[in-house]
Amino acid sequence: MHVDEKTVRRIAHLARIKITDDEAAGLESELSAILDWVEQLSEVDTESVEPMTRVVPISLKQREDIVKDGEKPNEIVANAPMSGDDFFVVPKVVE
């Protein structure tokens, strides 16, 4: 599977990672090599196989739907690069 530079740039934008021209060229060959290598999975007949959803066959535990934590906005914004009045501050989104 060859991934061209245009696709690399589209994927990088979807992943919200800015890439340089040099990086784009390197990633084109690296991603293509990885996708070529995983291509061997097409040899496996999976026609009647269910996809794995969980490795341990247990049912999830239930619990009461009650609030047990919270009321600590200071802690929540403690690591924010920018905050004000216990809100996260981001660049203007709507003009």
């Binding site: 496996v44 269910e50 959803t53």
Partner: peptide, 14 residues
């Protein structure tokens, strides 16, 4: 083609 296929292969490995 990729993710679903890989999860099926995972079922076979298990």
């Amino acid at each position: 083609a990729y993710y679903l296929k890989a999860q099926k292969v995972r079922t076979l490995i298990k």
